[in-house]
Write a protein that binds this DNA or RNA. Structure first.
Lengths: 345, 345
DNA sequence: CATTAGCACTCTCCTTGCCGGAGTGCTAAC
DNA sequence: GTTAGCACTCCGGCAAGGAGAGTGCTAATG
């Protein structure tokens, strides 16, 4: 199907998509004819357009309007016709600076980059951090957090910090707590959370644990804190930027749907998880994304890594009509920036 | 001025405000006359309305429209005419349940309550947590967070957790770090952050610190981590709910302004800080709130406490036209709920 | 003397009809 | 195969007109 189109046809498609991206208006045959240097007359363009419409790449809002690219049209454009823009030096610098400011905890870094990405692209930006299960621990510590409440703080490589609360744990002296903490910390370093959990359980089975008070205590408390997997995290920045897009600014209903979606972590996860696994940038157009409530949005996202394992992804959410040639390099750059920032942590 | 109005006039004002709250449309003399059992004819009402307009409580969108309450009108209504609704049993239960689910870390609790509040009120809900400077520490711990990076984790009474990163700190053995941590923890318990900082500085001055390695290390690292005050936190839930309000749904510009404001922590802080100090619920109408960019929104907020000291506030942000009789009790209840939840932490 | 009925007036909003513009599809000519 | 020409469709804007809601003023009323 893709190769079923000759060069001329695809060139027309490309111009239509690009014009539509630029203007947000249905584009007519006259416009395209002019844009292509009048090598072809409007009438010819019309014929080609009719073909493209039949093939499912274009649609007409109404009989006498111009054509608008369909999801398939955008898909084809992205896969075969797109020529990426080179990032402006200035934009790269800005991103670097944003990353530099996020010198504090990891979430601050991610927020700054995401925010700037959002502003540069005029779309809402989203970062998801995968569930920490797979991430490697750097250190853990039990801390007193209240009467009969103890907090297990876990620090991952890359700088993510997590808390888990255990309740109803009889009070321990500060000294004891420190010992217990130290013991578990020993056990944890360099493991993933998943591995740590397994290890705790296996140790618990051994005799020794039953007789060594500190060890036993550390293990049972660790087991309690780690029973259920912690969910990943989601950061959304630049919601206001989606109002820059006429498709949202004009349609309150759509706007509401997307704002609601932003309030459901799980929805955002579903939108970005494909990108997380993959090593290259992912663009899902419209219906392709797996979220039924949002058949008319586009997601451009790329995973970022911590060493060899992917720990999350960063991306943009907006209408189908995005400036992909610009936005794709932006997201890629942001993702690679995060990857390098996390490298030496 | 307030007492310069007779009973009849205020009753008319009340009806106008309430009708406007219910319908979001300018209200005319005929409507009010009917609503008041035709005790007064529309013509009389018109005279009264003219008075009210002169006094600044009402305004006319255009000559032949009905009247709309001004900021001053709402203010007067809130201060003198409002009759609070009683919260429905079911709503109280829901709030309790939401608080119960937030059994994990403090931020989860706050988020759940805020979210439900937002949905019940059909407005965006905001929680601010004051800068932790004034809060009392429960425990602190140094944790390894990377090469030459150490994280100071502080747990406050009430369950808030904070991290501060210190960079370029030469590596320490696990054992040493634990000792240092334990030492600082001893020092910290029961103090506010502010007190702890002062104490560290004074201890650092003493001779002993210079000779005791652990102590000296703990103090210098503590000092480094605590140099600058951490900002408070802001949680915003239910942004999508503001689209329920026609004043925002119809005016993209206004919507954008408010969404932008939501992305600036400092703006939200300025909006809610008055409520934080006060012990009673605060309602700022329009121009009264101190944020120039948002002269046309209303904030209903109440502080919540941790023991005797106020640690934050929870509130709603929306158009002037809010159902105050319902929303005020809701916010109050939510705030008191948070207060009790934090009491036994 | 406050209240009210009556009335002329104003302004918005909706409908209707009309026109121009943009764009199309088809056909016939090149 | 391409293109010029043409009839046709549909949208958007604009003006005119009428209904509706509401007002302010005036004069009559209890």
């Amino acid at each position: 199907m893709a190769s079923g189109m000759d060069d001329r046809t695809t060139r027309v498609l490309r111009h239509i998509v690009e014009d539509y991206i630029a203007t947000a208006e249905p584009v007519g045959s006259r416009t395209i004819s002019k844009k292509m240097g009048q090598a072809l007359s409007p009438a010819t363009i019309r014929n080609i357009m009719a073909d493209l419409e039949e093939a499912g790449y274009l649609a007409q809002p109404h009989t006498s309007a111009g054509r608008v690219p369909t999801g398939a049209g955008f898909r084809y454009y992205i896969d075969h016709l797109l020529s990426r823009q080179v990032l402006a030096r200035g934009e790269m610098d800005q991103l670097h600076r944003a990353a530099g400011e996020g010198n504090g905890p990891a979430d601050e870094l991610v927020r700054q980059v995401s925010r700037l990405l959002s502003n540069l692209a005029h779309q809402a930006s989203v970062v998801v951090v995968s569930s920490p299960e797979q991430q490697i621990l750097r250190s853990v510590s039990f801390m007193r957090a209240g009467v009969e409440r103890i907090l297990l703080v876990t620090v991952m490589r890359g700088g993510w910090v997590q808390h888990r609360l255990i309740e109803g744990e009889p009070d321990l002296s500060g000294d004891e707590l420190e010992k217990i903490s130290a013991f578990l910390n020993e056990l944890a370093e360099g493991q993933t959370l998943l591995q740590l959990r397994a290890r705790i359980l296996s140790e618990l089975g051994k005799e020794k644990a039953r007789y060594d008070r500190v060890m036993g205590r550390a293990l049972t408390m660790g087991a309690r804190a780690l029973v259920d997997a912690a969910p990943g995290e989601v950061f959304i920045e630049g919601r206001a930027n989606i109002l820059e897009q006429p498709e949202f600014a004009e349609d309150v209903h759509r706007l509401k749907r997307i704002l609601r979606a932003f309030e459901e972590k799980s929805v955002i996860f579903r939108l970005l998880d494909r990108a997380m696994e993959s090593r290259v940038i992912q663009v899902s157009v419209g219906i392709e994304n797996t979220v039924e409530e949002l058949p008319d949005i586009s997601v451009v996202a790329s995973g970022y890594r911590q060493g060899a394992s992917s720990v999350g992804s960063i991306g943009l959410i907006g209408p189908l009509r995005m400036d992909y040639s610009r936005v794709i390099p932006l997201v890629e750059y942001a993702a690679s920036l995060l990857t390098t920032m996390f490298e030496d942590r």
